[in-house]
Each structure stands twice: as C-alpha cells, then as structure tokens.
Design a protein around this nucleic acid. Structure first.
Lengths: 205, 205, 205, 205
DNA sequence: TATGAATGAGATTTCATTCAT
DNA sequence: GATGAATGAAATCTCATTCAT
C-alpha cells in the first residue's frame, strides 16, 4: 500500500502524470486524494491544478493515451502480418507486453471505467470497443481458417483471451523468473491452443 | 451507474448486505458512501451500524463469505472427481458458474483487496491463496498426466485460466444468448485446450 | 461589518436561517462563507448540513419566503380595499413596513438574485414578477382614475415607486426618530403625489 | 449571467477597468475572480497586476471615479441654476442620465460599499455623503420655497428621490422604448410632484 | 510589458462514525 | 431496534497574490 514518491527532477507535468499512475493503479481513483497526488508529485495541491484540469481529466488522459497506443499497436500488427494465426499470436504478444511493461496504465483502464462521468465514459468505451473489435475480427479469421464456427464462439474466445492476457498486469514483475519475451511467447501458445490451433507453428517472434 | 434500491421486505441485516454488494460492485468501496448504503438498504445511516461494524468489516465479510464458498466448492470438486482432466474441467465450470451467478461478490473480491487494512488484507489473501493453491495442484496434475513439464508453466497456466474464467463476471447476463451451462461447458473446453489437452473428452457435466 | 452572533437558545434550524439572514444581508451571498454561517449559528460547518441543503438552497428559501409573504400581503390589500387611491396608499404602507421590519430579507431579495443558478433564478423571478404585476395594475387603476394616460407612464411610475419604497430597508432603524407608521404614512403621501394625486385624501391608516 | 469579453484593442489598463466594470456589476465583487477578470480583459492573471494594485484597489478606483463625477456634475448643476425647483429638476435629470448611461459604475457604487475595508470604506462614504448633502440642501430649498416644513421631511424626501432615481440603472436599456431624455424629463416631473411641487413648470431641459 | 509557475489559505461539501434519546 | 443530531477530518477545487524570468 505505501507507494514511494516520484520526486524526481522530471518536469512537473510529467511528475503529476507519474503520480497519478502510481496512485490510481495502487489505490484506485476514489482511493487516491488530491493531496496524496500532490505530495507524491512533489507539489502543493494548489500547484497541481496548473498541470491538470480536474482529477477526472487526469484519469481520462491516462486512459486515452493507453488505449490509443493499444489501438495503434494492434493496427500495426494487423498491417504487418497476413496469416491469421500469426496475427493472433503477435496480437497476444503485443497485449502481454503492454500489460507487463505498463501495468499501471492498463490496470487503470481495466478497473476505473465506471468512475467516469457520462461523457468521459462514452469516449473511453468507444476507444475500448475499437480495440476489442480488432481482436474480434482476428479471432474470427483464425476460427474460420481452422474450419471452426465463428459466431458466438468467437466472442467467447475473444473475451477469454483478452481477460487472460490482461491478467499479466497483475502479477508480472520485471525482476521475476521469466523474461518478458518468454512470457509473451508462452501466452501466445496458450492463446492459440485455447482457440483450437493444435500445433502452434511459429511461436517465436 | 444508477443502481436500483433493494427496498425489499427482507430482514434488515440482509438488506444491508445486499446494498453493499450492489454498490461496492457497481461503484467500488471508496466510491460508495455510508449514506448511499443506508438509503439503498432503506435505513438511516445511523441504523446501519446496528447491523455491521465498520464499513471495512462489511467489505471483509463479503469477501470472506465469497472466498470460503469458492474454497468449499473447489474442495468438493476435488473430492468428487479423481481424473485430473475431469477435475480441471469441473473446477472451471464451478468457477464460471460462481462468477456468472454471483458477479457482485466476485467482482468485489477481485477488485477491492487493496483497500483493506493490513490485518484484513492478510486474512483475505490467505483465503485467496488457499483457493488458488487448489487450482495450482489440479493444473499440475493435468500437465503431469499429459506428459508436460509442470513447473513455471503450471503457474502461468493457472493464472491464465483463473483470469480468463473470472472475466465471466464482467459480461455474463442471465438473459443473454447463451445459457449458463453452455458457457460453463465451453469455458471448460477452452481451458483444457489451453493447458494442452488436445481432445477434451467429457465436456458435459 | 462585524455581525453579532445569534447564539440563542432557539432551535438549530431557526438559528441557521437567522445566521443566513444576518450575514447574507450584511456581507452578501458570496461574501459569506459556510464557516462564518456555522459559527454565527453556533454549529460546526458539518452540522450546518443537517439543516439545509446547499448554500444556494438556503438563499432561495429566504427569497421564496419573503416574496410569498409580500405577494400574500399585496393580495390582501387589493382584496380589502376597492378605491384605487386607497389601494395604492395601503400597498405603499405595506411595502414600507415590510422593508422596515424585515430589512435583511428584503435586501437579500433585492440584491442577490443574480447569484442564483438558472433554475432557482427562474423561480424567484417568477415570484418577483407576480408581486410587481400587482403593483402595476394598482398603479394603472390610479392613473386611469385621475384621468392620466396609463401606458408607459404606469410602468415608469411603478418602478419609481417600488425603488423608492424598497430603499427604506437601507436606512430605517426601529430606534430612530420616526415611528414606523409615520414613515409608512409619509411614504404613502409621497407616492400618491408622485403618481399625480394632488391632495391625497386619506393618508391615515 | 454570461458576460461577453471586452477583447478590444483598447490599451490594457482600460481593458482591465472595463472588465472590472462588467463583472463587478454583473456578478458582484466577491462573485468575480481575478482569473475571470484577467480572461475578460484578455490578459493573464499575473499581468493584471501590472495595471492595478489589489482587487480592492480596483473597486475603490471605480467607486471614486464614479462618485467624483457625480459630485462634480451636481455642483455644476447648482452653479448653473438658481431657482430651487429648476435645480432639483436638473439634479434629477443628471442623476437619471448618469445611472442610465453608466449603470455598471452606479450599480457597483450602490451595491458593493460594504465589501470595502475600513479605510477604503471611509473614503467612499465620505464622497457619497458629500453627494447626498448637495441633494439634501437642494431638496430643503425646494421645500422652503413652497412653504413646506423642511426638517425630517426633507431627509425622507431626499432618500425617496435618490432611491427612485438610482433604480433607473437597473432597468434602463438604450435600445428600449423611451429615449433617455424622455425618461429623465419624466423622472424630473415625478420627483417634483413627490416633494410637493404641484405643477412642475419647466420640465424641459 | 507580460506571463508561467507556484502557493497558503480558504471555498463548499461529504466523509465515516458516535451517541443520546 | 431505530434515528436525528452532531462532528473532526477530509474531500475537490478556487482564491488572491507573488516572483523569477
């Protein structure tokens, strides 16, 4: 629960963002006070408001940045690969990497959507839906490629895959036993098997 | 975001618990106020304290009940089945059912552990660890049975399985397209494939 | 500027209202803080919120009560008297009395309308318009009775009369030189002369 | 309530003054923030302090200018006219014109005296008293001229006259039905009748 | 001349909780 | 069993103002 302060020499605006990431991820949006945020960023709570709008704006900015990056990365994967299985494998690796390397951002995105007001929520959900729709079509392509039905099953599989991969943000530690690329590769294997690909061919990246 | 009140004729103690489930699940612990809780339960905020200790006690009670039931159910599964694959399949079905039928409880357990104080957190984490250790050994048994290595892979697979199945609490609706037992069966298939069982033999329950 | 505290033994709800009257009248709505209000009423600022909604609600309640009473009194005058000149004389006396006896309320009504939000402002302005329309028709009747044109002149006269009489709230002191009824009678004479009645017949009440 | 920005090409100092007039008149001194003032003047809030002392200084300057002009104009009227009735008629016209043409200034003078600190308040009240004493003696002269007692009655009449004429600032619109000079003339008639002059002789200017 | 950065103090309102009745 | 009254602490956010650049 105690979160060490950022207190670096980085520009204040960045420190505010870092503080928000640290604390929102660790204690949740409603569990984080403005004063904690300020202290963590090494500012007074009044000064905080030079670098942000409202507390909610700060949250939305974090979510938007994170989701936009996920979308861009997913689109890049789809562009770079043509083979359905390879696409899915690479999508899984990308998602796992994102959640292992930016666990704060992704945890905030995954866990704090419901605190947003109507307008902000709509925006964030639109982004999230765009990201998920990329997954959806990639999963459907794989199911079609291996001769499986791709209706309700594809939705189920997409959800299962996304949840399973997002979980990485909850436990991965960069100083842990498995290097990140190992974890990403293994998840790709698990994911392909899950959707029904019997012998995932090219697990390497 | 608007959560309809319980306002039933149930005994007050139960109404308090229901209110907490509704609101903690919908808005989070820190996002739920004592007065909202009281209003939702049809009591005054002072009366609330006849039926609970502190707000945190209420949260802990919800988590404890939920986790103890999961543990009991998991132990029952292990007792009832001997075959590793069948055990895992049944464990998955049980977990999916629990998350589909009691999404509020499981969401609270999954999402609010970090708000607990040290003592309560230790207790809850102990329970969670017990539950996960049951899964861990069942997964290991399956991997051993199919001739796969069961070290770090088993931990990875267990985490992937649990995350993927817990996600059901986020999207399952009792009035949706798939009946619950279908979803449970399908998840069992997905899960077995994930760990490497090629032709899940007895998907039915 | 220093306003002596109410601090009586009156019920808290009343003390809050009194405090608001004292301070809103003396320092204005925006010049009065919640903490000053609380201190003046002998409560903590948190306790204040047992007896009121928001600060604006408190203001609106004061305005509504004051305006509704003015309207009721004006309607009573119109009902009680038939002669136009007598009606106007009595209306003036009533208005002067109200502003002399309840200077805090009337000053708040006259000076703080623009701080209200849209909804509250609409309500208050509706009440104010009702009150002024009573005056308007009484003034028109007088002008007609004395053979004067009653168009734009009546509007001008009504405004002049109301402003002149409302000013009493700014200077009348109960311990001053003139008894209230004298002031009221004299204003009735001034007012009738203003609209053009040469020898106000029944200045007494 | 929304006040359109000044945003002109006028020199900054003037823009600051205009902004203060707009906002103090519309929202009151305490209802106007330094940042609103700055935005309205097209400056940053820090730059504002190049053109003013404190916020209160700005308010005092507005009040002083307005009152000094009223005093000068009133003295000019007294100098220019010898006949008591004509003096009063012209004084009324002047006051009405001032309030119709500079409603922001006069509203601020009339409504924000009590927010001033002791020193500033003393200065402003001294000016106001000087202005009112001019009126007082003119009214007394009229009463004496028409053979009426001029003691307490004169004070009452002066107050009634001033309030009634100041009210013009609250409703006069330059694009309204009556041209300003009409309004001024009519108020002169109303005012003379009010003090007891039966047939105001020279209503025109 | 002009402004970003900064802040201590204070704004209004809600927090979880207690207690006398 | 139930609640109105009460509150210290804290919530988010704005205040008027200063200062180095």
């Amino acid at each position: 629960m105690p979160v060490p302060p950022t207190a670096s020499t980085a520009p204040a605006e960045e420190r505010v963002r870092e503080a928000a990431l640290d604390l929102f991820a660790a204690r949740g949006y409603h569990g984080t006070g403005i004063r904690q945020l300020a202290e963590h960023a090494g500012l007074s709570s009044a000064s905080l408001y030079h670098y942000m709008g409202t507390k909610e704006d700060l949250l939305v900015a974090i979510m938007r940045t994170c989701l936009e990056r996920l979308i861009a990365d997913a689109e890049a994967v789809v562009t770079a690969r043509a083979d359905p299985e390879e696409r899915l494998a690479e999508l899984i690796r990308m998602h796992v990497r994102a959640h292992a390397e930016r666990p704060r951002e992704t945890r905030v995105v995954d866990g704090e959507v419901e605190v947003l007001g109507a307008a902000a929520r709509a925006e964030v959900i639109t982004l999230r839906d765009r990201y998920e729709s990329i997954w959806q079509s990639v999963v459907e392509d794989v199911l079609t490629a291996i001769g499986a039905p791709a209706g309700e099953d594809a939705r189920l599989a997409r959800r299962a895959l996304l949840e399973m991969c997002s979980g990485v943000a909850r436990w991965y530690r960069p100083d842990g036993r498995s290097p990140l690329e190992d974890v990403a590769d293994r998840y790709a294997v698990l994911g392909l098997r899950l959707v029904g690909v019997p012998h995932p061919s090219h697990p390497s990246h």
